[in-house]
Structures are given as C-alpha cells and as structure tokens.
Nucleic acid binder design. Structure first.
Lengths: 246, 246
DNA sequence: GCAAAAGTGTTGTCTCTACACCCATGT
DNA sequence: ACATGGGTGTAGAGACAACACTTTTGC
C-alpha cells in the first residue's frame, strides 16, 4: 500500500447542488459506453460525481478532491449524509457492463459514502475525467445509473432538513446578494412560498447577515440593498435549540 | 461469494443507548487480550458493539442482527448516523495487537458505518460472542478502543439533535410510562431542567401520546396517569416543519 | 398525619401570520 | 409616464416562560 494506491471497496459520491435563478440544479456526469471496435454507443446515461478513495485519504478529503477536480474550488460547503452498500446496488445490466468496460470486478461489493455540497457559482469545468458534466434541474433528475437515484433523493431530503435548521442558503448565492434572492433560495428548495415582510423580519434577527454599503446596479427598478453572510458572527452567536416540535 | 461470506472491509458499529432512572447509558463490550501461553491479561478495555457485515446483508440488516444478538429483540429503534474510515482508525498499538490475535490483517482498511439505537428495556443478555457486556453511564465513557470514542460522541450529538426534532424519547421508556418519566428522559439527554407545567402543556398537544385507563400502583404518593405512544397517530399527524431558527 | 410525587392556571412577553401601499430606478 | 421589483407596519392569535398550591396515595 503506497501513497497513491486506490481503495477499491470504498467510494464517495457527491450530490452537488447549484442554484440559478429560481432553479435548484444538480451536477451530473455523463456515462457513455461504446463498442470498442466501431465506437457505437451501447448506452448513455448519467451518474453523480463519484470516485474511489485513495488509501491515504479520509472520506472528507476524497469528497473535497472530487469537488476540487470538478470546480477548481477549495473549501466549499460539504456534508456527509449517508452511506449506501446494498449488495445489489451495482447489479443492473448496464452497470455491470460499465464496470467490466472499466476493468473493474463487477462482483466486488462497494460501499459508497454520500456527500452533498452547495455551490454558489456555476463556474465549473464542464468536463471531468474526459466525461461531460452538466447541471440538471432537480425535477428532471430521473434514471440515474447505479443506485444514484436513491442517493440523490436522500441528499435532497438531508439538504431540506439542514436548510430549515441551519443557515446554509447563503452557500448557494454569490458573496453579495439581495434579500429577495435569499428568499427565493428558501422558496425553491423547500417548495413553498413565503411572505416577504415576514421573511425579512425573520432574517433581520440574524446578526450574521450584514448589509453592505452597496446596492444593486443597472436594474430597472429600485435597486436592492446587498447583504453578505458573516461566518464569524454566525459561529459566535449560534446556539443550541430546543423545540421538539413535531 | 456464498451466502454466509463475511465482508472484511465493511463493518457496522452500534451505539446502543439505554435509559434507567435518570441515567443515560451505553452498552459496551469488553475486549480482553490474553497471552496464548499463560493466559495472562495483556490489556482489557471496552468497545462499542460492532461487527463485520455479511456479503448478502444490507447495512441496516447487519445493524439489526447485531442488536438482535445482544438483546433478542427485533424492530428496535435504529438510525444510521455517520460513517468512519480514517486511514489510521485501527492503528493504535493495542488495536493492532487485538486484530492480529483475531487472525485479522491489521493493515486492512475497514470502513465502519455508525448506527445508534434506543432501548426501552435493560433486559439484555450480558454476554455476546463470549465477551462480557455492560451498561455504562455516558459521563463515564472514556478510552474506548479503536476510534470508538469519536463514534460515540457523534452518536450522542445525533441523538440529541434527533430528540429535539422528533418524538423518540418514548423508545427509551417501557410501553406504559408517566409524564414525569418522559420529562426526565428529556432532561437527562439534553442536560437541562424543564418546567413541569410547561412541559405538560407541550406534550398535551401531541395527540399520539395517549392516556390509558390505568394508573401507577404501589407508589407512596398520588399515583400517576399512565400514557403510551401511538405510532399510527404519530405517522398520520406528523408534518414537515419550517423554522430555520438558528 | 406526614412524606412524596402528581396534577393544575394565569399573566406578561414574544413570535407568528396575514395583509397593501409607496418608492427608486431604467426605459 | 409606466413597468418593475424594493421596501415597510400593524393587529390579532398563538406560543413561551415564570411561578405555587392542592391532591392522592403508602406508611
């Protein structure tokens, strides 16, 4: 086991969420199997961004590496949410063909650790390990490879849960944003509509949301105040909750 | 790979919480290494209840199996909360000795999937795979083997988080319980004290907490009304929350 | 009758919801 | 001037925190 040995039983899959103009998207990677002789396409479909881990890596490091390869960004928001290891998770015919074509043992049981991640920016390389990469609206995510639909659904559930209890909406927005943009993030992810005045009263209590000396420019209406998220203030003022509300 | 093949890279560790009279306890398993010749004790310490999975098992099934082996109970409350795979998680000297003594490869990287579980009853076999098993108050849990301290701390964090947001306190109590017992569960786990009248007003809104035609008996004070938790009502009336409170 | 825990209401404060109009800018 | 989204306040309802005494049982 030397430094760059690949561990072939543990992988990490990243459900990378991006937000754009009222749409919540996920980053998907094309998987295309071609006949070795004539290059004819056997099938083409989509997967999450995932990879095996290296023997020297922690799980978090492996997830960060995958994100860095895709985005060129370090330190983006990342949460481990669940692991998946059903014995039949790689057993569908296309998945078996794919594994064989990659020189991998299709009978090897692989556990995958699911992470989700939030990206403020859509500036990503649209290629990864020679494969095409694209954003897809979450409503249009169907028929992913392997057990990636299940992983995706669990990630979305975990994201919604987290969004309700912790201020992570900012991660999906640029560094400077308006309160309306923030409200749209919440509305989009939670699938609700919120009252503008009540929403503003609520966020007014969040001291880590700081108004800048700057307004929107070039819009054909009253320019909005810009805000930013101050992580230091957040870390200092966050507290434990007690509600057991259900 | 036949039916009962063991997978030697994936394991499951269960942090089993039990509640008894104002104390939150965890079930720990003794690990004792003896010299093969003279039987002298090399070291003795404690671990969580964990085991490798079988190739045909899902992770949930493996966790249920471990719980069943320890308790004889099926369908007890169980949550997967996090996976652990640090490259050095089994590298401490005692852990290496132990793995070798068990005929296992101490360099094999093993990922473990953490589950926590809540037990109403303390009726458990106090033996498991020939090893002693005991309850230990959570305040006294120190120096567990492997990375089990980390797993334990993460489990406790996940349990507290869950307790605040979902009604799982009942799982730690017998089928029939008093409101004071329930309040004590919350106070113990969360490390707070709660006002009796306010607590009762709060739980009065929970329709799935149903009063029985039965009172405490044989107590040297006014006998308390007994309640039970009705899962059907809970499932029907639970709703999604929206607070994003922090 | 006494010890021990059960059970019960009110008040003030805070938070939530519902709701409609004027403002600043670009064209 | 008009279209567009930005920005603001109030009233009523419900939730929350703080607080003390009476009741029922076993001994």
């Amino acid at each position: 086991m030397t430094a760059n040995t690949i561990n072939n039983t543990i992988s990490v899959d990243c459900v990378i969420f991006g937000y754009d103009n009222g749409m919540l998207n996920v980053l998907l990677v094309e998987r295309m199997l071609k006949e070795p002789q004539d290059g004819q396409v056997v099938f083409a479909d989509l997967t999450l961004a995932g990879n095996h881990i290296y023997e020297h890596e922690t799980l978090d490091e492996a997830a960060q590496r995958i994100l860095f390869d895709l985005t060129g960004l370090k330190s983006i928001y990342l949460e481990q949410f669940k692991s998946f290891a059903n014995p039949d998770r790689l057993k569908r015919p296309n998945d078996q063909l794919w594994l064989r074509s990659q020189g991998r043992n299709p009978d090897q049981r692989i556990i995958t650790v699911g992470y989700y991640s939030l990206l403020a920016s859509h500036d990503i390389t649209l290629e990864w390990k020679g494969r095409n990469v694209k954003w897809q609206a979450i409503a249009d995510v169907t028929d992913l490879a392997f057990d990636h639909m299940e992983i995706f659904h669990e990630a979305l559930k975990a994201l919604r849960q987290k969004l309700i209890h912790e201020p992570i909406g900012f991660e999906l927005l640029p560094a400077k944003f308006t309160l309306t943009q923030l409200q749209q993030v919440y509305e989009t992810i939670l699938g609700t509509t919120l009252d503008k005045r009540n929403f503003r009263k609520k966020v007014a209590k969040m001291k880590y949301l700081v108004p800048l000396d700057e307004k929107q420019k070039g819009v054909a209406h009253k320019p909005a105040q810009l805000y930013t998220f101050n992580r230091d203030i957040y870390e200092q003022t966050k507290k434990e909750l007690f509600d057991f509300n259900i």
